[in-house]
Design a protein around this nucleic acid. Structure first.
Length: 515
DNA sequence: GTAGGGTTAG
């Protein structure tokens, strides 16, 4: 064989990367230096791609330093690969600083950063950056595919429709990924019917197209529609993969279709020979828990052939809350705290379970535990889009210009709930233990989702549904509140929380009060 | 031989 050169080394690095042998790929790069092969920007970008796939910025940083020392960073491919590496490792500050210091940005630079912001939970930054693309650089279909998930996560239907119009004008509609991203966007903005219309118009549906729509029905609690679509998909000869099965299993669990869930779980294993992964087990635990079969769920977890993680245990902990099983909850929570000692959400969930059982001593002990770990409670935050503008409400926020009106609305509703439904706020969900009931009730009234719902009722036309999005799961007290508001105002309230959609209509919720 | 894209759920 002829002399090895930089091209053959690069090809090897890429081959290792494709085979997911990241460490071998990186080792190969390090050996190049020792062998005195001249390093060019092609190898650098390739090995940065390796680091991005591996998700470790430690290796990436060494390459970054090398590129800096050797003056390669002015090459836009190198700069873009660096940005992508940092974005994939979750370090958006570093990605941004490279972006800012890159003089010759091309569309890939913009797409990389927009996509990075979208994926790392900074959807507003993604949207903002999109608006800053200069005239001379033309966005392409990939830009849209990077941007649409940001719109989806914000649930801004108006913005989404604007961007959809842009996609049509620019002629990106015949692109699969863009089409799928649009369907997903409409689903996550609560516009299920629009999503379906678009879905039906997609001429060549691929597996992702079907999966997005099935998952969409699932999130909205339309289990039967999800199952119909899944059947239709199979009739068309599509072969569901593990993601499609997560979608259909969650659709079953969100709609309480327990037997159907087991049917698909068995189908996955027997007919498609897909080994269940953690997420599939989590769905099944969710299904069992929903049916109130908590002990069975516990045994099921202990019989798993793979090590359960916190999401699997977490599904059971949710069940313990709904069925008020404090003893099992403690056992389960112990497992979770071992696995994820720093995730505040689980402490809050256990605290809520204790609170509902009025076990104040335990609540106190748990609070001390949270305090000693210096964990901060995640701030609840809800938002609502009216006339294209997004209003954000934070728990206990008192700065809104309409705060008096909103406060009065919430208080009036609570008063009516007490009179008409024997509702007792009982401070069940307010995590304040040394406060008296009045203070707890006040804290409940200030929950962000109540404020956003009140704002929606006060500021939108009668007959229009009210769409609210929340960053965390909806609180139980707010869930009761929303049900009541939908009844007495005759308004439809659609609330997307971190887990699913709740559609409140005439005093009922699509989640059937299990979430 | 180089860098950017979509899907479940949390």
């Amino acid at each position: 064989m002829k002399q090895r050169n930089v091209v053959s080394w690069t090809a090897m690095i890429m081959a290792y990367t494709r085979a997911e042998h990241y460490d071998q790929a990186i080792d190969l790069f390090l050996h190049m230096e020792e062998e005195g092969v001249k390093i060019d920007e092609f190898v650098i970008t390739s090995v940065l791609h390796t680091c991005a796939c591996k998700g470790s910025s430690k290796d990436g940083q060494r390459i970054h330093e090398y590129a800096l020392k050797n003056g390669m960073i002015s090459n836009s491919s190198v700069a873009n690969a660096l940005m992508d590496m940092y974005a994939k490792c979750g370090n958006m500050e570093e990605a941004r600083s490279i972006f800012d210091s890159t003089l010759n940005k091309n569309i890939i630079s913009w797409n990389t950063l927009i996509g990075g912001y979208s994926k790392n939970g900074f959807p507003n930054d993604a949207l903002h950056l999109f608006g800053k693309i200069p005239q001379k650089i033309r966005p392409n279909a990939i830009t849209m595919a990077c941007l649409l998930p940001a719109v989806a996560s914000l649930s801004c239907l108006e913005r989404g429709r604007e961007i959809h119009a842009y996609v049509i004008r620019a002629g990106f509609v015949r692109n699969h990924q863009v089409e799928n991203a649009l369907v997903d966007m409409y689903v996550k903005c609560g516009a299920l019917i629009l999503a379906r219309v678009l879905f039906d118009r997609i001429y060549e549906k691929n597996l992702v197209t079907w999966t997005v729509m099935i998952a969409g029905y699932g999130m909205h609690g339309h289990g039967a529609d999800a199952i119909n679509l899944f059947k239709q998909m199979r009739r068309k000869g599509m072969k569901p993969d593990k993601v499609s099965f997560v979608a259909i299993l969650y659709a079953c669990s969100h709609s309480g279709l327990i037997h159907e869930g087991w049917f698909f779980f068995n189908m996955m294993r027997n007919e498609y020979h897909i080994e269940p992964k953690l997420e599939h087990y989590a769905c099944m635990v969710d299904l069992l828990s929903r049916a109130g079969r908590l002990e069975k769920a516990y045994d099921f977890i202990n019989s798993m052939p793979i090590e359960p993680d916190s999401t699997v245990w977490g599904a059971l902990l949710c069940g313990c809350r709904v069925y008020r099983d404090v003893n099992l909850a403690e056992k389960v929570a112990d497992q979770i705290f071992k696995l994820e000692p720093d995730n505040t959400g689980y402490y809050v969930l256990l605290a809520n379970i204790y609170t509902e059982a009025e076990k104040w001593e335990e609540v106190k002990r748990l609070r001390e535990r949270i305090g000693s770990r210096r964990l901060k409670k995640n701030l609840g935050c809800s938002w609502i889009e009216t006339r294209g503008k997004v209003q954000v409400f934070v728990s206990g926020d008192n700065s809104h210009p309409q705060k008096e009106e909103i406060k009065k609305f919430v208080e009036d509703v609570v008063k009516r709930m007490k009179e008409e439904e024997q509702y007792a706020p009982n401070a069940r969900y307010a995590l304040m233990i040394n406060a008296d009931d009045r203070l707890k009730e006040e804290a409940l009234c200030g929950h962000s989702e109540k404020l956003a719902i009140a704002f929606g009722v006060l500021n939108s036309a009668y007959g229009r549904p009210i769409h609210v999005t929340k960053n965390l799961r909806i609180c139980g007290d707010c869930h009761e509140f929303a049900k009541f508001v939908s009844k007495v105002t005759g308004r439809e309230i659609v609330l997307r929380d971190s887990k699913r959609f709740h559609k409140f209509e005439e005093g009922r919720c699509s989640c059937r009060c299990y979430w």
